[in-house]
Simulated assay, not measured.
Amino acid sequence: MKLRSNSPNETYDLGFTLGSYIEWGLIVCIEGEMGAGKTALSQGIIRGLGVVEKYITSPTYTLVNEYKVRDLSIYHFDVYRVGDYDELSAIGFEEYFNEGSIVVIEWADMIRENLPDNSIWINIERVDHENLREISIKGIEKLKKPLREELRKWEKI
């Protein structure tokens, strides 16, 4: 599925839509060049999941930020500065993947071979001018029907 975003706000809104419908236990892998909109999308997803009381930032230097919604956990990773997968293994990376959590990973392409097959992949690319983005979602068949239908409203390509 290919979508378009005309601004950082639209990218955030798309993320909010994803977060509003997404199922717990999912791993959302986001890839794209520096400044493409990975963090705006991640922030929208996390807000859509129900996190309202905290400021949401990219965990570029801390590796992971954790948010709670009821008794469920949202883990937001930024693996841009990870030297190798052993660094993630040392913090028990695989233990974050469970049915009581959502995992959002920015720069996921850097560790692609170490991520589960059931991950959803979102690629953000700059197109034509400064704010226009093409957003591709792979693995959409793994999403529940109401979310797939909602995303079709965003389909512009």
Rank of each mutant, 00 (worst) to 15 (best):
L3F: 15
S5E: 05
N6E: 11
S7P: 13
P8K: 04
E10F: 13
L14A: 13
L14W: 14
G15S: 06
T17N: 06
T17K: 07
L18S: 07
L18V: 04
Y21V: 05
I22E: 06
W24N: 04
L26I: 15
I27P: 04
V28Q: 00
C29S: 08
C29I: 04
I30N: 03
M34G: 01
K38Q: 02
K38T: 13
T39S: 11
A40P: 02
A40G: 00
Q43C: 03
I46L: 09
V52L: 06
V52M: 06
Y55T: 06
I56K: 09
S58H: 05
T60L: 09
T62S: 15
L63W: 15
L63M: 13
E66S: 00
Y67V: 04
Y67L: 00
V69G: 04
V69K: 08
D71A: 12
S73T: 14
S73I: 07
I74E: 02
Y75K: 05
F77K: 04
D78F: 03
D78M: 07
V79H: 11
Y80N: 10
R81Y: 07
Y85T: 00
D86K: 13
L88R: 06
S89F: 00
A90E: 01
N98Y: 05
E99Q: 12
I102S: 02
V104M: 00
E106H: 05
W107S: 10
A108I: 05
I111V: 13
E113F: 14
P116T: 01
D117I: 10
D117T: 14
S119F: 07
S119H: 14
D128L: 15
R133F: 12
R133K: 13
S136Y: 02
S136K: 02
S136A: 02
S136F: 01
K138S: 13
K138M: 13
I140C: 11
E141P: 00
K142N: 09
L143C: 09
K144H: 14
K144Q: 15
K145P: 04
K145A: 13
R148F: 14
E149L: 10
L151R: 09
E155M: 15
E155R: 13
